[in-house]
């Protein structure tokens, strides 16, 4: 698969910061790729892990579970995990699952960089 077709992009805009950016909806068929990308990013021991959800129009409970797992890992390593650029529909799913208070959610990746 060419890199441009990657379902999840991972990059480091600054030393110690990893940004994981899913490029499609996150459902049962796609959450394994997100889980793998988050694990690989976490394995690099960043100071801060940002999940950029700007291109995620939809997420189901498998995506929520993946992010909860990543948050648990982040807490164990001491590296904050921040969710950025979440649209209203995805935010509604977090609210239904009452996870909106569990995560740090900000409006943009720039905001996540300055938290």
């Amino acid at each position: 698969m060419p890199e441009s077709d990657a379902i999840v992009e991972v990059h480091s805009p600054r030393t110690g910061i990893m940004v994981v950016a899913p490029k499609s909806d996150v459902d049962l068929s796609r959450s394994p790729e997100l889980r793998q990308a988050l694990r690989e990013a976490s394995d690099r021991r960043p100071d801060r892990l940002i999940v950029d959800l700007a291109e995620v129009g939809y997420m189901d409970s498998s995506g929520l579970a993946t992010l909860v797992e990543a948050m648990r890992t982040a807490k164990s390593t001491g590296a904050p995990l921040i969710l950025a650029s979440m649209n209203q529909k995805v935010r509604a799913i977090f609210e239904i699952a009452r996870l909106d208070q569990f995560f740090t959610i900000v409006d943009s990746v720039d905001a996540a960089l300055s938290v």
Partner: peptide
């Protein structure tokens, strides 16, 4: 129980 924050088990609640 949603107070137990852990991966999975949210489908029926949703």
């Amino acid at each position: 129980d949603l107070d137990d924050v852990r991966p999975g088990g949210l489908g029926v609640h949703i």
